[in-house]
Design a protein around this nucleic acid. Structure first.
Length: 445
RNA sequence: GGUCCCAUCGUCCAGAGGCCUAGGACACAGCCCUUUCAAGGCUGCGACACGAGUUCGAAUCUCGUUGGGACCGCCA
């Protein structure tokens, strides 16, 4: 069954993909994937001054990072191209002339302006906000409140935003326009042009804004600018994806942690909220942690590797299986990839342990006991957490010691940290010989 | 200032007239488990902005007030 739902994400390449743009792109993608429709990427590069190919590239990379693939775009031409506005001049000129001929537009100083009528009421049904109506004389105004005709072609010949979107959405057959709420106020202006040209009107769905802690629209100054910074900060694409999906929307059953395919299945424009949402890093951290827990170990490993490298750890001398199981051994600890990498460093390097722990807390009186115990522990037939723990429990009992007394120093010697997964889990992961080496270094066997 | 939009715990969401002495999640506090917590379990704290209506009954509908946001570029 062919599906003709067509949505688009239309960023302007004047900056990287920021969190607000990512949110809009995500919801478009979710809608397209849920309905089986087509997701179009259109580059709105009509600002000659600020648009750059580098930003265009960066936006696409950001989308790829988030796993938001598009079906049509500058790099994926289909029947509705080109996909950059700067390459679609022909249609802007054509329809401008049509408007000029019909007397609905006029030229002034080399620019073409659309004549805004008065006395009309422009109404549209937003899929999220419901019915919105504005009087045409209020649709486009000067600072003093007088009607302001809409510039459609600038003096440099390029189309303006409000005009180009209409022409492109129409000619690209977009039938559902999903964009930020900041565009709700632009919609009446665009509707005027739709009417003047006799174009069929698409459905509109505006999304609540994402606000910063100060409740102001996210600007480049606050928080991370591009989605890549979230990567560097330790967030998973799936974490950002999941977290962003929860801003302004939630599945009917209240599930908060979900995979991409679950999100696609569950997504519903009808349950998008209207209230602007404040971005809460604590929640992102939590969602990110949950995503790390359910992620495929080998996939997670690919992401953690660069973080380990940044910590100066030599991961090349270990197999992927060892590294992946080290990550698994962390048992869900750490909220970000950055933390996970840092917390697990002792699986890769004993040097980091030596730097952190000098063993000067060990009282000489108990060293003999520890030596005796660790020596025997290293000889258990089966170097698994279960066996080691069982062995230890009986040992401390018959030697009038305690779990605390022997396990805590062991943790320090093995990890150089106060906190870690179960110490026998750590020991098993490190392996008998590595444990022997570390204990020997601290003169504990 | 004008136009448009919004209004439930600190934050993100449930709630579409009785199921609400308002539910979940994050954060916070406390407790528990344990060899440690950065893992896990439990408990607590905490909100329907206000005022009028409509109704037998309102967080849910209407109006007003207040508060917040967005936009007012030949930027998008």
């Amino acid at each position: 069954m062919p599906n003709n739902t067509r949505v688009r994400f239309a960023p302007s390449p004047t900056g990287s993909l920021h969190i607000g743009g990512a949110h809009t792109a995500l919801f478009n993608w979710l809608y397209a994937r849920h309905t089986g429709g087509t997701f179009v990427l259109r580059i709105e590069d009509t600002d000659k001054e600020r648009s750059t190919p580098e930003y265009e590239q960066s936006i696409m990379d950001g989308m790829r990072w988030m796993g938001l693939d598009w079906d049509e775009g500058p790099d994926k031409p289909a029947g509705y191209g080109p996909y950059r506005q700067s390459e679609r001049m022909e249609s802007y000129t054509k329809y401008a002339e049509q408007l000029l001929d019909a007397g609905l537009a006029y030229k002034d100083d080399g620019a073409v302006l659309f004549k805004v009528p008065s006395g009309e009421t422009i109404t549209f049904d937003d899929e999220v906000y419901g019915q919105i109506s504005v009087k045409s004389e209020n649709a486009s105004v000067n600072q003093d409140g007088t009607i302001k005709d809409i510039v459609i072609l600038k003096r440099d010949g390029m189309p303006t935003y409000n005009y180009a979107v209409v022409i492109d959405d129409y000619t690209m057959n977009i039938n559902m326009v999903i964009r930020g709420e900041d565009h709700i106020i632009n919609t009446p202006k665009q509707l005027l042009i739709y009417h003047a040209l006799g174009f069929e009107i698409p459905k509109f769905a505006h999304l609540p804004m994402i606000l910063g802690k100060d409740k102001k629209k996210l600007s480049k100054r606050q928080g991370a600018t591009s989605v890549f910074e979230y990567n560097d900060l330790g967030y998973l694409p799936d974490g950002v994806f999941n977290f962003l999906a929860l801003l302004g929307w939630s599945p009917k059953d209240g599930q908060e942690v979900f995979t991409r395919s679950e999100a696609i299945k569950l997504f519903d424009l009808g349950s998008v909220t209207k209230k602007p949402a404040v971005l809460d890093i604590d929640k992102l951290n939590h969602i990110n942690q949950e995503q790390m827990k359910i992620m495929d170990p080998q996939e997670l490993l690919k992401i953690i590797k660069p973080f380990w490298k940044n910590l100066g750890l030599d991961i090349n001398s270990y197999s992927d299986d060892y590294l992946a199981s080290s990550l698994q051994a962390m048992g869900g600890r750490g909220q970000t990839t950055l933390q996970l990498a840092e917390y697990s460093d002792y699986f890769i390097s004993f040097d980091t342990v030596k730097e952190r722990y000098k063993a000067d807390d060990i009282k000489e009186e108990i060293r003999p006991l520890l030596k005796k115990f660790y020596g025997e522990l290293l000889e258990v037939a089966d170097f698994t957490p279960q066996t080691m723990e069982a062995f230890t429990r009986t040992w401390v009992e018959s030697n009038e010691s305690s779990m605390k007394e022997v396990a805590l120093p062991l943790r320090w010697a093995l990890t150089g940290r106060k906190v870690s997964p179960g110490v026998f889990e750590v020991a098993a992961q490190l392996g008998r010989e590595e444990c022997r080496k570390r204990l020997a270094y601290y003169n504990l066997i």
